[in-house]
Design a protein around this nucleic acid. Structure first.
Length: 907
RNA sequence: GGACGGCUAGCUCAGUUGGUUAGAGCGACUGGUUUACACCCAGUAGGUCACAGGUUCGAGUCCUGUGCCGUCCACCA
């Protein structure tokens, strides 16, 4: 074995083996329970980020653990076509070649985009392999695959026929750069420092009398069709029925009253521009006002904006209109104003509220979706996200699902040529289209990407084709066991998948029928949802390409190994909390792997002739009568650890589980057990028993770690001879109880007191080491120690004598009957311990140390005494707590007594 | 404006239903190659648990309020 673990060769070799032997294949096997996960499909053109590393490592841990526990496991991978993102990239590419999408035409563009996708896409799936992800690659799905696309269209058609889908001319979020409508979720509110302009509108029946209006968007004045005031405003009675003159594109517009106007904001007077503001639109509807759209789709002004501004960009026009108003004397005031402006998530420009004809979806199964989570049929980890989820569902708005793009699923609606598109009489809605296509033209728009990915858990498993569903195991693997994703897409994806599952899984149900709880449980797409945190850089900033603060995971794999990266990232990922990334943690992960490698090497160097594969034959090598306290203690700790890890994994507490394994492996096993076993290796009496115990511990550690660090554990599993041809992937670590049973079955009864005793001995060794270290005697074995104890304690010390001597590194540790003078002393649970220094000691330094010790003891004692003398405490606290305090007092008093004596002995 | 999360050692974080003297890793410092590992071993220092009240025999933990950081939701032009 190499002196240091070399991950590169091991990882590539093992991954190839796993893939070749079909380890990751999700088999439909009714003899076994199913465990399934569908991957949150990354953008087909994306590359691996630290977020993906975290997210997919967690999924891999779940999948691998399930395999070990005997579940027939499917982790289904795939990619998302990512409408706007991908189309934008392809268009950028075209632009470099001096072309636009219109040069190619729709079909040509799609052909081009597909080629581009096939050439550049899917990189991320290769990167996931490097990370060790155990996805069933045979089942990779892309949202634009023919079958998947059919499922998407089918869902639209069904929703349409059930009355959930409608077409309407409404206010939508318009992105003037992408030239498409967006859903509310794709709009990001950002605080902006703008200006609030105060503008005067002249009353037509009383020239020189003006009303003042505040606005942040003077460039829309040409679209004003009214001024509005709150009906309770005292000015209303005198304004009712009167009119004002619009200061730009002059026209006479009415003054109206509407409840929606805030009396106390600005001047209490609101200009109504129904074409460019959602609230204004609403008010316009109520008062049956005209709609004047002064913008072109790309955010420039059109002819209705007037000749002076026509063709200008909206922000340019803002400046120009302000200037014009100023010239006219209509600008009364301008002041700085902070407000929130909605930005397009993709293009990062302010969205434009725009009236347009779009397809909308009234969400199906909203009530059932709430119930699925509030009743715990779907469990959220951490639980607090249920509140966010429910709040969104309470206030849910219809979903604009049409996008003015080409890259995506084209809406399966055809309009009769030459007829009005507004009249449903002229619509044809079906997956395959009309039989006489020449008489129809298809809707130009595509569906929102999320309106395809919300079908992910069912459409990746054959839905809606009955035969395919059966073949692909929808009924076997669904509902999927767990979903691992970020809370940022709880609305975009998680909530919508739940509704889609409820609506589409199983037999169709009338929209008016509410699903029963039983039915809900059958239809939900997943049982547990684990929300990861967001990975931030060391300064707490979100990782992003533009900041350049995101390390390339592949570089990290190169440097630390995939296992090191996985271990590192998992050790810092508290449940659902944001994560501060630091490369040092990844280094720790690598170090951990190296430690594992080296303790295995030690095991091999001790004796590589003994190789046993399964638990039973390892146990058979143990001679029960040769087991010492160390053996009992380590086995008990192993059992504790197995249970703890089992429980923590079950609660998705990955970092705690890892910490628990770490503690057992590094502290208990390596630092103490293996160290102590060195003398047993040398002496040879009980060497085989000791090696068997080592094997048992190592075997279980490998099993527990395998989900986190799959490569090194598989490699060592083989090297240490545990495999006998069977991969670690299929071996269950079992729990503490099960191991205890196995141990009993070979006639070993573990002694719980041994663990307590060993812990006390460790504490003793630690303080003896400290006493030495303070004098820089760490490597000096010549020192002698004495102890002053009663018989029972002396007996214990005697039993551990050789291990204490070698652990501390001393020549002798003998019992003495009286306190030796002039020696530094320790007060321990085994009595007083003295260090004999050949050359004299620094009495003053010793005194200082012991006095410090006394001081701290006095503080503790007086605190306990105070507590115990308080009748309220002795009366009200539970007896065992009071008893504990008394015991503690006695112990500390004894310690003080001995310390005082030691101090006197120095004088 | 509303909701949620965070604030514990220099840094990153643990800390179960309130109960002994608040822990770990990293970093710092000291010392170390004895049958694996310097990607290692031994040890030391370092904390007014954000702040202010309250409940309680007892509060890092529960309650109220405040502050700072972060996230999400919201039609004040």
């Amino acid at each position: 074995m190499e002196k240091a673990y070399q991950p590169k060769e091991v990882e590539d070799r093992l991954y190839e083996n796993w893939e070749k032997d079909g380890s990751f294949a999700g088999k439909i096997n009714p003899e076994h329970p199913a465990y399934s996960i569908v991957i949150p499909p990354p953008n087909v053109t994306g590359v691996l980020t630290m977020g993906h590393v975290l997210n997919n490592t967690i999924q891999d841990i779940l999948a691998r653990r399930a395999r070990q526990h005997g579940y027939s496991t499917l982790w289904l991978p795939g990619t998302d076509h990512a409408g706007i993102a991908t189309q934008t990239k392809v268009e950028q590419q075209l632009r470099k070649e001096g072309k636009t999408k219109h040069d190619l035409g729709r079909d040509g563009f799609l052909e081009h985009a597909k080629e581009w996708r096939d050439k550049h896409g899917g990189i991320i799936l290769k990167q996931l392999r490097k990370l060790g992800c155990s996805c069933d690659w045979e089942r990779t799905v892309h949202t634009l695959d023919p079958d998947y696309s059919r499922a998407v269209l089918e869902s639209f058609v069904r929703l349409f026929h059930n009355g959930y889908v409608y077409r309407g001319k409404r206010m939508v979020n318009w992105c003037p750069v992408s030239l498409t409508a967006l859903s509310d979720e794709e709009v990001i509110m950002k605080p902006q420092n703008g200006k609030l302009y105060k503008i005067r509108y002249e009353l037509t029946d009383s020239p020189s009398e003006y009303l003042e209006v505040s606005t942040t968007r003077p460039e829309t004045i040409m679209g004003d069709v009214a001024l509005a005031i709150h009906p309770d405003d005292e000015r209303w009675p005198s304004l009712k029925g009167r009119k004002v003159r619009r200061p730009l594109q002059p026209a006479e517009i009415p003054i109206i009253a509407d409840q929606a106007v805030e009396k106390d904001f600005g001047t209490g007077m609101l200009k109504i521009t129904p074409a460019h503001d959602p609230l204004d639109f609403e008010i316009g509807q109520r008062h049956d006002l005209e709609i004047i759209d002064v913008f072109n789709p790309d955010g420039t002004l059109n002819h209705l904006g007037g000749p002076e501004f026509s063709g200008m960009d909206r922000f340019e026009a803002r400046k120009a209109t302000v200037e014009k108003l100023r010239e006219q004397g209509d600008l009364i005031d301008e002041e700085d104003h902070a407000n929130n402006v909605g930005f397009s998530e993709r293009a990062d420009v302010p969205i434009e509220p725009r009236l347009s004809e779009q397809w909308f979806l009234r969400y199906p199964r909203v009530e059932e979706a709430k119930r699925a989570v509030s009743q715990g049929f779907i469990r959220y980890f951490p639980e607090r996200w249920t509140k966010t989820y429910l709040h969104w569902l309470e206030n849910i708005q219809d979903w604009c699902i049409s996008r003015q793009l080409w890259w995506g699923h084209r809406i399966p609606v055809w309009y009769r040529k030459g007829s009005s598109r507004s009249d449903p009489q002229n619509w044809h809605v079906s997956v395959d289209g009309p039989e006489d296509p020449d008489n129809w033209e298809q809707d130009e728009d595509v569906l929102d990407t999320w309106a395809s990915s919300w079908l992910w858990p069912i459409a990746t498993m054959g839905w809606p084709d009955k035969e395919e569903m059966h073949k692909q195991g929808l009924d076997y693997f669904y509902p999927t066991s767990a979903l691992v994703t970020g809370p940022d897409i709880i609305f975009f994806w998680v909530a919508r998948m739940i509704m889609a599952g409820l609506e589409f899984k199983g037999e169709p149900v009338d929209p008016k029928t509410i699903l029963s709880d039983e039915e809900i449980q059958k239809r939900i797409p997943f049982r547990d949802v684990y929300f990861t945190g967001i990975i931030r850089d060391s300064k707490g900033r979100k990782m992003s390409k533009s900041l350049g603060n995101s390390p390339d995971p592949l570089d990290l794999i190169e440097k630390y190994g995939a296992d090191g990266l996985r271990h590192g990232i998992m050790s810092i990922a508290p449940k659902g909390q944001d994560i501060r990334f630091s490369e040092e943690r990844i280094e720790q992960g690598r170090n951990f792997c190296n430690k594992l490698w080296n303790v295995s090497r030690f095991r091999q160097m001790s004796d590589n002739s003994v190789r046993t594969s399964d638990l039973k034959s390892i146990l058979k090598r143990i001679q029960p009568e040769q087991l010492n306290q160390d053996d009992h203690a380590i086995l008990l700790r192993l059992i504790e650890t197995l249970d703890e890890v089992d429980r923590l994994y079950g609660q998705y507490e990955f970092n705690s589980a890892l910490q628990s394994i770490y503690r057992f492996f590094w502290n208990d096993l390596c630092d103490w057990y293996v160290e102590n076993s060195k003398s047993r290796m040398r002496e040879g009496k009980d060497k085989d028993t000791c090696l068997a115990v080592q094997d048992l511990c190592l075997r279980q550690v490998l099993l527990l770690l395998h989900p986190v660090t799959p490569f090194i554990t598989e490699e060592l599993w083989d090297v240490l001879g545990f495999s006998a041809g069977k991969s670690i992937q299929w071996v269950c670590p079992g729990n503490g109880e099960k191991l205890l049973e196995e141990i009993r079955s070979v006639g070993i009864i573990l002694d719980r007191l041994a663990l307590t005793e060993i812990l006390a001995i460790r504490e003793l060794v630690t303080s003896m080491r400290a006493l030495k270290a303070e004098r820089n005697l760490a490597s000096n074995n010549k020192v002698e120690f004495f102890y002053l104890s009663d018989d029972s304690k002396a007996e214990v010390l005697n039993r551990h004598l050789s291990s204490i001597q070698s652990s501390v590194g001393i020549a002798a540790f003998n019992r003495t009957v009286s306190a030796p003078n002039g020696m530094p002393a320790l007060v321990t649970s085994f009595g007083s311990v003295y260090m004999d220094l050949a050359s004299g000691i620094d009495v003053d330094a010793e005194k200082a140390r012991l006095n410090k010790e006394l001081e701290s003891l006095d503080k503790i004692i007086s605190n306990i005494e105070k507590k115990l003398s308080n009748e309220a405490f002795t009366g009200k606290a539970p007896p065992q707590v009071v008893e504990g305090a008394r015991k503690q007092l006695a112990e500390n008093q004894a310690k003080r007594q001995e310390t005082t004596e030691a101090l006197q002995a120095l004088a």
